[in-house]
């Protein structure tokens, strides 16, 4: 699944580590999600959406 995580993170000038800390996950997780190697669970996707103040479908896009 594609996502806009990297763009949203860059807009806020956050490193992967910053985002990982805010989401309480590892930096490896953020990197895997950003690069599309791993699709997060629905609860984590909601946490990401809440953090950016956006609906899930504006962050995660259908292939």
């Amino acid at each position: 699944m594609k996502n806009r995580l990297k763009i949203l993170r860059a807009e806020r000038d956050w490193s992967q580590g910053d985002l990982a800390e805010r989401l309480e996950v590892s930096r490896q997780s953020v990197n895997a999600i950003e690069t599309g190697k791993y699709d997060p669970s629905l609860p984590l996707a909601f946490r990401i959406a809440d953090l950016f103040g956006l609906p899930i479908e504006e962050i995660f896009l259908k292939d």
């Binding site: 590892s26 490896q28 997780s29 999600i33 997060p40």
Partner: peptide, 8 residues
């Protein structure tokens, strides 16, 4: 392990 990706 609470981190779901690391758990995977």
């Amino acid at each position: 392990l609470t981190d779901e990706y690391l758990r995977l």
